[in-house]
Each structure stands twice: as structure tokens, then as C-alpha cells.
Amino acid sequence: MGELRVERLKKHYPARRGSGHRTGLRVFDDVTFTVGEGEFVSVIGASGCGKTTVLNLAAGLDTPSGGSIFVDGRAVTGPGLDRGIVFQEFALFPWLTVAENIAFGLKSMRVPGEQRKRTVAHIVDLVGLKQFADYYPNRLSGGMRQRVGLGRALAINPSVLLMDEPFGALDSVTREAMQNALAEIWIETRKTVLFITHDIREAVFLSDRVLLLAGRPSQIVLDLPIDLPRPRGRHDASFQEKERNLEVALRGGSSQTGDSGEAPAPREKTVSH
């Protein structure tokens, strides 16, 4: 269990006075991809290309203009506890302790108290917060906060884990530590993961496949398998080669929105005029 299928997904924002988009914004018209069971797939792309939009649609927190999303064959129509979401801005509940934050989704599912306690204890351990279960989030560092965010999502044992630049708000040292932690947790849990990032190295380090989103409206311009053995070394030659591949593709992809006419994919027509 745990397949995420995105089919012909379309998202337009309507024109709004004063929004700068007089004719509306076509974020993407036709995005299709599948994250197989137990697969870790990253979506990478320049800021503003619609990565968060894809994730929000998959989360059911936003509605598509067209196309559909399926989790294990069931169409997504709204938020649901079959998907666990980790937010870039953590979005922890400040009035709940670490353990209570992690238990939030379990309470929604009406998991009985005894079982809930066991699950929370297991998750708190898994994300490395054993000593901090009774802390309030404001006393935790950024990295620890995101561990809580990850724990909250894992606790409901979702079919799919959706993560939107979860380490984007962290400093580079903490970020690497969190990547290592996530890689370990993923090996242990083998969750299906859709991971959003704009960090090439992060994508290569964590993913089985990397999708590159680029253009305007955005499209998937590259679907790159990362068939490196795990655990991965960031300084291995094969690792760095993948990084370079992606970097070249990312530059090419983003130049479509710039003025260079030599973009590998045909230039997209803009919506205006």
C-alpha cells in the first residue's frame, strides 16, 4: 500500500485585480507522474515553479483546476489521514508538547489511549526525541522542531508521506544532519515519499528518482533515476556526477523562463497577450 499517482494535473489561478496577473496564472497544465510503493521521489525546481502547489494538491489542501490524484487508487478529494504532511514552516501546535503534537493525528483517528501511547513512544524514539517528549515546541531548536513535524506525519502510518522543503528553514549543518536522519528513518520505514526541494544535493542524497519541474506553465522536463546504493556518500564520484547532471538540467530548465533562446525544451507561450 502506498502508491501516489498524479494524472494530467492542472492548476490555474484566476486573474485578480491588483495581483499582477491580469490574465491569470497557469502554474501547470498537464503534470503526470507516479510515485511507486516504497519509492522516494523528489520534485526539484526553481522557486515559484509550482512545487508547493503540487504538494498541496496531493495533500488535498487545495483543489486542482483539472486532472486528478490517486492514493492507492482512491481519488484525492480533500485532506486525509492516508497522507502524512511535513511542512516547511513546521506548523507545530505551540500549546501541545512534542508527544501531544505527534499524537494529534492519532487522536483524530480515535486510536484508543493505550495504543496511542505506544505509537507515540515508538515515534518519539524513531525521530530521536526521547528526552524531549514533554517539551513545548518553543523550547526546541529548528532541527528538533522538524523532527516533531516528521514524527507527527509518521505517527498516523500514512500510505504516502508528503514533504514540502522540510529542511528549507534550517541552517546547512542542521540540514545535513536532518537529511541523514531522514535517510535512516526511510530505510527503516520504507514509506512512499513525495519530497519537494530546491536543493540538488539533498534530492540526490535522499531520492530514488528526481523529477525536475520547469517552464511556464511548468512541466516535468526530467525524470532522473538515482540508482546509487545507500547509505550514500555526498563526496563519492558517482554522487557528484548525478549532482552535475541535475544542475545542468536545472539551468537549462530555468533558462526557459529567462531570455536565452537555446532552452532544450521548446519555450512555453506565456499566458498574457
Binding site: 488535498g60 489542501l61 485532506p79 504532511i85 511542512f87 507545530l92 494529534f104 487522536k107 483517528m109
Partner: peptide, 14 residues
């Protein structure tokens, strides 16, 4: 209230 908290709450079943 921080809208991201409402979104998180919706995502986790509230």
C-alpha cells in the same frame, strides 16, 4: 491564528 496551523490541523484530521 497562523493559517499554517489551520492547514496542519486540517491535514491531520481536524
Amino acid at each position: 491564528i497562523d493559517v499554517s496551523l489551520i492547514r496542519a490541523a486540517r491535514a491531520f484530521g481536524a
